[in-house]
Amino acid sequence: MTQLQPEATLNGNTANEPMIIAQQVEKWYDNNFHVLRGVDLTVRKGEVVVVMGPSGSGKSTFIRTFNALETYQKGSITIDGIHLSHDLKNIEAIRREVGMVFQQFNLFPHLTVLQNVTLAPIWVRRWTKARAEEVAMQLLERVGILNQAQKFPGQLSGGQQQRVAIARALAMQPKIMLFDEPTSALDPEMVREVLDVMRTLAASGMTMVCVTHEVGFAREVADRVVLMDSGLLVEEAEPNEFFNSPKEERTKKFLSQIL
C-alpha cells in the first residue's frame, strides 16, 4: 500500500490546482433540520479523499451538493473553477464534469448495459452513436463486463451492476468522480471487485471523493481521510495519521466502533 502513495502524491504535486473548494457550506432540510453546519473541504487535482462518519452525519448530503443533487443555503462551492449557484447553466456544466456512483447503482432497468453507458454521451455530449459505443466498449472492458454489454441490468449481479454504474459515469469523461457508499448495498463477496475498479481508477490519477466505510481501501488509496459528525467536519488527516493517531476524541470513538 505504500507503493501506491508516491504515485498519488506525485500526481498531486505536478498539478495541484484545486478541483473542489467548499467553504462554510450550510444546509437546512425542508423541516429545518440543520444537516450541514459549515463544512470546509478542498480537493486538489488527482487527490483521493475518503469521507467517513456515522449515519446521519451529513456525509452523503455533503458530497451530493458537489453536483447539485442537493442544494445548500450558505457558503460557497466551486467545482473546477465554476461557482455552483442556482444558475441552471452552471449546474449543467458542473454535472458534465462530475461523475457519480450511487449506493443503489441506479442503473436504468429498461436499457441494456451498453445503452446505459452510451446514453449520456449521445444525448448530452452529442457524440455519434458509433463513437459513444466505441468508448463504452473500452470502459466496459476496463471494468470487466465486456461480455455482458447486451444484457439488461436486472440480469447482472450487484457487483457487476455497480461496475457498469462506474463505467456509465466514466463515459462522460468526468474530471471528478463522487462515490456515495458504492459498496454498502453489495454482498460481501462482491465488494472486492468494485473496490478493485476504484483502485485502478485512483491510480490513473482521477480526482475522487468517496463516502465509504471500507477502512482497507481508505488506508491504501486515500490521500486524505475526513471524519464528519453532526454536519461538521471533525478531523482531516492523512490515512496513517487518521487511523493510527487521531487527534480528536470523536474520531477515536468512531474508529473504536468500526475497527
Partner: peptide
C-alpha cells in the same frame, strides 16, 4: 419509478426534458 432514476440521470448531465423522455 424510484427517485434514484432521476438522480442518476441528473448526475449524468441530462436536463429535465431528457430525463423525463428517456428515463
Amino acid at each position: 419509478i424510484p427517485k434514484g432514476q432521476t438522480e442518476a440521470a441528473n448526475a449524468l448531465g441530462l436536463n429535465t426534458p431528457l430525463t423525463l423522455g428517456l428515463i
